[in-house]
């Protein structure tokens, strides 16, 4: 079930972006390509990020950008590791600057149904060792296989 939310071709490594908004757009690319999200998703997620930022000050900074269900056609998650950190504002604290290395983009319609996968992401971001492995992964397959062990 939950594993179908994440596909290997939704994972990108060493992304090069100038800012958090480009990071969201990059993370959304594979989902847009395979029709998982509407074209408006990116703009909506960027807008939401401005108002309700999603950066988290975990051992390796992560961000969990997402937006409303109406922009989601097929529930999916994508992951981007960034070559250089970009600053996201802190979740619940927009004045906080958080250097982020890993972006988990969430395209979710039914959170109750996807609770398992959401909890998996939370388990992963609380695990410094796993975050290091994701950050240092040399290919998407490494990240995919690693995350699959948690699902």
């Amino acid at each position: 079930m939950a594993s179908s939310l994440l596909q290997e071709d939704h994972i990108q490594i060493n992304g090069i972006v100038r800012d958090q908004f480009e990071a969201i757009a990059l993370a959304a690319e594979p989902l847009l390509r395979d029709g998982s999200i509407t074209e408006d998703f990116i703009e909506a997620a960027v807008e939401r990020e401005r108002v309700f930022p999603t950066g988290l000050p975990t051992k390796i900074g992560v961000a969990l950008p997402h937006t409303e269900a109406k922009y989601v056609l097929k529930e999916s998650i994508s992951i981007v590791t960034l070559k250089n950190t970009v600053v996201f504002a802190g979740m619940g604290n927009p004045k906080e600057s958080i250097p982020v290395n890993i972006v988990f983009l969430l395209a979710i319609q039914d959170p109750q149904k996807q609770l398992g996968v959401l909890q998996t992401i939370v388990t992963i971001i609380q695990n410094e060792k796993v975050l290091h492995k994701i950050k240092d992964a040399k290919d998407p397959k490494t990240i995919y296989n690693l995350i699959k062990t948690f699902l």
Binding site: V51, F52, T54, L64, H66, A69, L106, I108, L118, V122
Partner: peptide
């Protein structure tokens, strides 16, 4: 409460 009541608040509520 969270921005969209979609992702983080679901995990936090559980």
């Amino acid at each position: 409460a969270c921005g969209t009541a979609l992702a983080t608040s679901t995990v936090v509520a559980r």
